[in-house]
Design a binder for these strands. Structure first.
Lengths: 110, 110
DNA sequence: TATAGTACCTTGCAATACAAGGTATGATGT
DNA sequence: ACATCATACCTTGTATTGCAAGGTACTATA
């Protein structure tokens, strides 16, 4: 376990990817490469080997669905949509985030 | 992967324990049972099987040191202190927390 | 037909939180 | 002296999950 900033940032991110992905998909149906781009713009770099298994897990749990859409150039894209169950999960994540923020606020005297 | 609130809260917590422990120890030297109590009061329940290995990791990385202190009743207590390296790590955690908050704020339109 | 670009996916590894159980010390009651 | 209880520290095995690395497939272009 290193203590450099990169590693700390990485550790903290754990568990937030699902929340972030549901957030992006609530705004707009997207395919994986698009999600990677969107997450990067929001300040959270994710690689394919992390994203694909996560999307599959979320889909298997009924939080997401997908459909194939032809691309203007290249292979077809797998567009993911958030389901009603996914939206319910997103609300729970909002609540969990709020509570975690309160906890950190208490401990750090923010 | 369940989607109930408890599980979501648990997932989100991952990676934050080190930050929270350093925060508590910055205020006051503590022994593990005391840390578990302090974390619980701040809204973050942790069990022994999680805490002990984590303290050992942090100590092995030079973030913490400890000394034995006799208890008024019962076996001696292992009081942990934060080291200069631990304080530096805490500052990095503050920065990482801020960046993560910004990311969530961007994605959730907070 | 070969190459490049885009896109989706899998395998193996390392880190870590937890459930469950274990060991040791000191006070109290019989 | 001995059993019991409360406190305290610690370990083992399991499941989850993020990542590095590598693989497969479709389409357009030279």
């Amino acid at each position: 376990m290193e203590t450099n900033t990169d590693n700390i940032r990485q550790q903290m991110r754990k568990g937030f990817l699902e929340y972030c992905i549901l957030s992006l998909l609530e705004k707009e149906d997207s395919y994986p490469t698009q999600l990677i781009q969107g997450l990067k713009e929001a300040g959270m770099t994710v690689v394919e080997g992390t994203l694909y298994p996560l999307l599959i897990r979320q889909k298997n749990n009924g939080l997401l669905s997908y459909r194939w859409v032809e691309s203007p150039q290249g292979p077809p894209r797998k567009f993911y949509s958030i389901t009603p169950k996914g939206k319910a999960a997103l609300e729970e994540y909002d609540q969990a985030w709020k509570e975690l923020s309160d906890t950190i606020g208490t401990l750090r005297n923010f």
